[in-house]
Simulated scan of single mutants.
Amino acid sequence: MSGRVRRRDARGMVTAELAVAILAVFSLFVLLCWGLVLIVVQLRLVDTAAAVARQEARHDAAAVSRARAEAPAGAVIHVVRQPTQVRVSVSVRVRSFARGLPAVPLHADAVVVPEPGSPR
């Protein structure tokens, strides 16, 4: 034993590092999923605002109700009709699916000119 150096046992060290790395990757994955959810909801708000504004400008009540039905759950749709434009605002608060993440308010607007032959 005179020429041998005894190595310290470090088998548990890799396990602890792996556990921390897995938690970090999982946290990043949850945040990325949350970001994707917010992007999808924002796109749905933009589409809803544009569709409702377009149908309101045409005075098509059936199409307006169909466009409103496509809005995300809990969305608030506000329509302002003026002689020269129709302004639609859609907003919603998106609650997180993970504990500790805050609800995020999202908002979209659309403005269109009423169609020439439509009643005012």
Rank of each mutant, 00 (worst) to 15 (best):
L43K: 14
G74W: 00
V111Y: 07
S27I: 04
A73M: 00
R7P: 02
L36K: 06
L31Q: 02
D9Q: 05
D9E: 04
V14L: 09
V88I: 01
R95T: 09
V86H: 03
V14S: 10
I39G: 15
P102I: 04
R93I: 04
R11W: 01
A73R: 05
D109W: 01
P72M: 01
P105A: 12
V46M: 06
R81F: 01
A69S: 14
A71H: 03
A16G: 08
A51L: 08
F29S: 15
R87G: 00
T15N: 06
L23E: 02
L106A: 08
V14P: 02
G100E: 08
V112T: 15
V40K: 12
R99A: 13
F97C: 13
L38Q: 08
R81I: 03
S91E: 09
D60F: 06
I22S: 14
E70C: 02
A110H: 06
R8H: 03
A50V: 10
L28K: 04
A10R: 09
Q42S: 14
V94S: 07
S96R: 05
L43P: 09
A71Q: 02
V113M: 14
A24L: 12
A51Q: 09
F97E: 09
V14H: 01
R44C: 12
A61I: 12
L101P: 03
S27K: 00
V90S: 10
V88D: 01
S96L: 07
G74C: 02
R87T: 11
A10S: 03
P83W: 02
I39W: 13
A10G: 04
P105D: 12
A57H: 04
A19S: 14
A16Y: 06
D60R: 10
R58M: 14
T48C: 10
A57D: 05
E17K: 07
A103I: 09
R11T: 10
R99D: 10
I22P: 06
I39K: 11
V90L: 11
D109T: 07
A10I: 04
S89A: 15
V14T: 06
A51C: 06
A103E: 13
A67E: 03
F26Y: 10
A110C: 10
S89G: 15
D47S: 15
G74F: 02
L43R: 15
A61H: 12
R99P: 14
